[in-house]
Simulated scan of single mutants.
Amino acid sequence: MAERRPSIPLALQRAVKEESGYRCAIPTCKGTSALEIAHIVPWVEVRTHEFENLITLCSVCHTMYDLEGKIPRKSIQQYKANLALLHGRYGEFERRLLEQFAQTNSSSVQLNTGRELDLYYLLRDGHLTARADSGGMFIGGMPVAQLVTYSLTSSGQALVKRMKAGSPLS
């Protein structure tokens, strides 16, 4: 009789899904429906649920990985490593901005002033530059909010390109 596999604890499921932003961890998919937790090294080999060995995949990608073997384990391991790097280094706002750059193929965005701390590591790591724009909102002739254009540098463009391809980020 086969051993019954215990359920993945809810707190662990939540942590794995938070790591990927509640999206499929495969960069070219990023699906948000029918999310499942997949073992990178199969359950039958490890017989344990460990954060480092779990990744969020949509049901289609999970099937292509586990059942059909169409996605190599090395690729899934790299996607997990990239998630760890992005999650450990960059804040939520920075990760969302990188994802926006990846999805839209744009290289700059205009934001109101005051976002410097939200983008601190991308700026510090040299992936973004900031340029204050002369425009903005005025009330009674007084400037209220000045816009800042944040642009990807060449290293930022390379980072986004690697993210999209699922290549190593480090």
Rank of each mutant, 00 (worst) to 15 (best):
E19D: 06
L128A: 02
V60T: 07
I76P: 02
G166R: 04
L57A: 07
E116S: 12
A25N: 09
R4W: 00
Q77H: 02
L35C: 09
V16Y: 01
M64F: 08
N105H: 08
K17S: 14
N112D: 03
H49W: 02
G31K: 12
R14N: 10
Q157N: 01
A15L: 08
L123F: 03
G135P: 05
G91D: 06
S151R: 06
D133Y: 01
P6Y: 02
T113W: 05
E99Y: 13
I8Y: 07
T32S: 13
A34H: 13
C29L: 01
M142H: 06
D66W: 05
L57F: 05
R124D: 12
A81I: 00
V46M: 03
Q100E: 15
P6L: 02
G31L: 00
A15F: 03
A132D: 15
V46P: 06
S106Y: 00
E92Q: 11
F93K: 05
Q157K: 07
N105Y: 02
I8L: 10
M137H: 13
V44I: 05
G21Y: 07
R115H: 15
G141N: 08
T129M: 01
C24F: 12
G135L: 13
A38M: 03
I8G: 09
Y120A: 15
L147E: 11
E68R: 15
K161M: 04
E116W: 04
E99M: 10
T28S: 09
K17I: 02
Q103R: 15
A165H: 03
L83R: 06
K70V: 00
N105L: 04
T113R: 07
A25S: 15
Y79M: 03
L57M: 12
Y120Q: 15
P168W: 01
L123G: 09
Y22F: 14
L119H: 08
T149V: 03
P72K: 11
H62I: 01
E18Q: 10
G21D: 11
L169I: 11
A34D: 10
Q78D: 00
Q78K: 06
S134I: 05
S106I: 08
A165Y: 03
D66F: 02
L57T: 03
S7M: 11
V109G: 01
G140R: 07
P6S: 02
L10G: 15
I139M: 08
T32E: 14
H49Q: 10
G156Q: 04
G31T: 06
S170M: 12
R73S: 05
Q100F: 14
L147Y: 13
L122W: 07
G21H: 13
Y65W: 10
I40M: 00
Y150P: 08
T32Q: 13
A158P: 03
V41T: 13
E45V: 01
K161H: 14
N53H: 04
N82D: 12
R14V: 13
A15E: 12
A130W: 00
G166S: 06
Q103M: 12
L117V: 10
I8T: 14
A81C: 04
A102M: 13
E19T: 03
L98Q: 14
P143K: 13
V144C: 09
I8E: 09
Y150C: 01
